[in-house]
Design a protein around this nucleic acid. Structure first.
Lengths: 236, 236
DNA sequence: CACTTTCGAGAATGACGTTCTCCGCCGCAA
DNA sequence: TTGCGGCGGAGAACGTCATTCTCGAAAGTG
């Protein structure tokens, strides 16, 4: 702690950091560069704290100590703590989505793309140590969904779009069902992925039922391609 | 508001109230009758407040005013506000699940049962007016999942068991896939249902993509029965 | 050097949850 | 009737936070 405000941000904090973490960090830094250097300090400090603790309930005091700044300037740049968190997670999601998109675009099968995406999301959310960011991200999703549903939908747009693009490609090449609008299919898929990631990240899965990413993928695949044939009857 | 503490609890608040709401209310009242009459007051008051406002962030002050009681006795019966909410939602979920189970057991096709269940959950969570309870329930799920994952899993058990039983029946009569353990299938299904209900309740669905219960069911059905045939390859 | 803008330090405020203290009230035994 | 033990009402007190406000001290500008 008390890191110099020099470049290297999180070499130590990203103890369990994978290459992906660092890549995300890097693109995050880019995004930051655009932002006013002032707000930057706060975002960076918040990012560090969240990465280390995996929680978003740090106090504003802690934040300003970490950012070597003052309450006054904090509230000069962000109208509230929530706004800061929103900004932080917006950046993270956007850059993660960009990251995933880049990785996935090298595959030509959209189903493989979805599978890979599912594994990324599920794995990252499951990282128990070091990558507290992912856990916090899951947790914060929920708070955000509660408090600002509209913002929530907006912030998740990059991920939704990524899934949507893959779904559309899948529809185009005939590997996905067409009896559900691709937009809807994408939203349902995203909800399923994100929901599962939440439970996984929180360890809220019941005892005897491990939801590993393969089973989850099998389930989604079924949902995405459609049932073998119309089974029994639909109720009234 | 300022309803008498007489019987009829939510006739007005349940403007969009279906018979089911009232049935749930009734069985809730039964459950209450068993509880110590003291704690009862608090649970009932909380239930009223939540039904009316659709939020769980009422202050303890409001609660004790409504329950015509005192802070002192509140903390004598519940160690914290959270514990109260937990108790309240445990009751609600348990009785709702019992209610649904009763309704569904009259159907002989397990798939129909799941379909009906999905519609119940989705509809109730979507009620925009009056039935604030359902909305609050969704919201509180999230908070609970965040703060006490273990309790969360426990409280949801009745619903999970209900789904599990249906899944097992479906497996038994050959209408559901067998390549995923029924426990896992049930958990995934529940996560999908509950997740969708959350988004629906919160209005957090993106603009152009209505996730109506039929589409959601189609998706789940696919996931539950399995893909038509193994399509393309799985990624590395 | 006056003058404005910027921002650090930190006190003040206001909401809440939670604890604590005082005291009346009710049932009960002698 | 009097004395007493405990339940529970009223509400003051405390601790933690987010958010605002106040006071100056640098730092750039003429």
């Amino acid at each position: 702690m008390t890191a110099t405000d020099a470049p290297s941000t999180s070499e130590e904090t990203a103890a369990g950091g994978t290459w992906r973490d660092r890549a995300v960090e890097r693109s995050l830094r880019n995004a930051r560069a655009k932002a006013a250097s002032r707000s930057d300090r706060f975002i960076r400090a918040a990012s560090e704290i969240v990465s280390e603790t995996g929680r978003t309930d740090f106090t504003v005091q802690t934040l300003i100590e970490r950012s070597r700044s003052s309450l006054r300037s904090f509230y000069q740049h962000f109208s509230s703590k929530e706004e800061l968190l929103l900004a932080l997670f917006e950046e993270i999601i956007a850059s993660s989505a960009a990251q995933w998109r880049a990785e996935i675009e090298t595959l030509d099968d959209p189903l493989s793309g979805l599978h890979v995406l599912l594994e990324r999301i599920h794995k990252e959310s499951g990282a128990t140590d070091g990558a507290g960011m992912n856990r916090a991200l899951s947790v914060y999703h929920l708070e955000l969904a509660n408090n600002h549903p509209a913002e929530y939908a907006r912030v998740l747009a990059p991920l939704r779009n990524l899934i949507f693009d893959l779904v559309q490609r899948g529809v185009a090449d005939g590997s996905l069902r067409t009896d559900i609008r691709p937009e809807t299919l994408a939203v349902i898929t995203m909800q399923t992925l994100v929901g599962a990631a939440h439970m996984h990240a929180l360890g809220a899965e019941p005892d005897g039922s491990p939801v590993d990413s393969e089973r989850l993928w099998d389930f989604c695949l079924g949902g995405l391609t459609g049932p073998p044939r119309a089974p029994a009857g639909t109720p009234r």
